[in-house]
């Protein structure tokens, strides 16, 4: 503890006591950033598939995130389902909703210009958000979780068990997505479709199915992050807006269409925000991340890890 009246970080208060507090604070910031980074990465990889590979500016990404969170609430609270089972089901339902959106809206717009697609997706975003409010009202909801409410305490640091679970699940899902896209036949067909549609079609890839499958996979990951983070935060109709803004930033930062890039981008954004808020100014916490993105894009306009084959 700091004696009253002494500001930690003040230039003339350097003694062991203050230095220890500062170190504790720094370590807590790093731990917080690690937890946050896992969730940002998960948000980013869902979108990098859709925005990066399919080149659909997916404004419904945030709503699919909110959809995952609302599914979690509906399954755990009124239905009374097991927390982990509900998580799995929320992800599957999110993928199904994604498939429906793709077939119903985007399927008719293949080859349409980007403005048209964007307008349709903005419309879908607003419609989905208002549907959530109509069904659930604007009052925030809480999803109970089976983890102990007392945090895990290691020395001066503490972190909630739920957040640890979220981090590990997120990392697991990121590896699974990476494997699907880069190591399976389905993933190969997906990549082929969006690299050269005509050649892929000639090789026997069913283009329409690949569009739907990719969109569904990305949507399932968005719903998964919502289902994981709904219990950490609160569930409300506008929760997707901020999530979508962060997801776009992460994808652009990491380089379009690159899962590893989106993962690293997520962690970079989390560390920039956490340390920026901790040591520069908390009022500009969200600006920190975006300032960093501007700097990185000035130096490397394709994002940190863009692969040349995906561009153009």
């Amino acid at each position: 503890m700091v004696p009253p009246g002494v500001r930690p970080g003040g230039s003339d208060t350097i003694h062991t006591h203050g230095a220890k507090t500062r170190l504790d604070q720094f370590l807590q910031h790093c731990l917080n950033a690690l937890m946050l980074g896992g969730t940002y990465a998960l948000l980013g990889i869902g979108l990098t598939l859709i925005f990066g590979i399919m080149r659909v500016v997916n404004f419904t990404h945030g709503e699919l995130y909110a959809f995952g969170a609302y599914c979690m609430y509906a399954l755990v609270v009124p239905v009374g389902m097991n927390f982990f089972l509900a998580l799995l089901l929320a992800m599957v339902l999110g993928a199904l909703l994604g498939a429906v959106i793709e077939m119903l809206l985007l399927g008719r717009l293949r080859g349409a210009d980007i403005d048209t697609t964007m307008l349709v997706m903005i419309g879908a975003w607003i419609a989905m958000q208002n549907t959530e409010q109509l069904i659930w009202s604007g009052v925030a909801l809480t999803v109970p979780n089976p983890f102990p409410s007392a945090p895990l305490v290691v020395g001066p640091l503490s972190v909630s068990w739920l957040r640890i679970f979220v981090l590990f699940t997120a990392v697991g899902l990121i590896f699974a997505a990476y494997t699907v896209v880069n190591r399976t036949k389905l993933g190969k067909a997906m990549r082929a479709t969006f690299q050269d549609r005509d050649t892929a079609a000639l090789m026997g890839v069913r283009i329409d199915r690949m569009h739907t499958a990719t969109f569904a996979l990305g949507s399932g990951l968005a719903a998964a992050s919502g289902a994981l983070l709904g219990p950490v935060f609160v569930v409300n109709p506008t929760m997707g807006d901020l999530a979508a803004a962060k997801a776009f930033a992460i994808v652009i930062l990491g380089g379009l269409g690159n899962i590893a890039g989106a993962t690293i981008g997520g962690f970079i954004l989390a560390f920039a925000e956490e340390l920026g808020a901790g040591y520069v100014s908390s009022g500009y916490r969200d600006a920190m991340g975006f300032v960093l993105i501007i700097i990185i894009l000035l130096v490397k306009p394709t994002g940190l890890f863009a692969q040349r084959e995906r561009i153009g």
């Binding site: 700091v2 604070q25 910031h29 917080n32 808020a277």
Partner: peptide, 10 residues
């Protein structure tokens, strides 16, 4: 989390 860590240290 960042704000709360700072407040705790204060």
């Amino acid at each position: 989390s960042a704000q709360l860590a700072k407040i705790k240290a204060s």
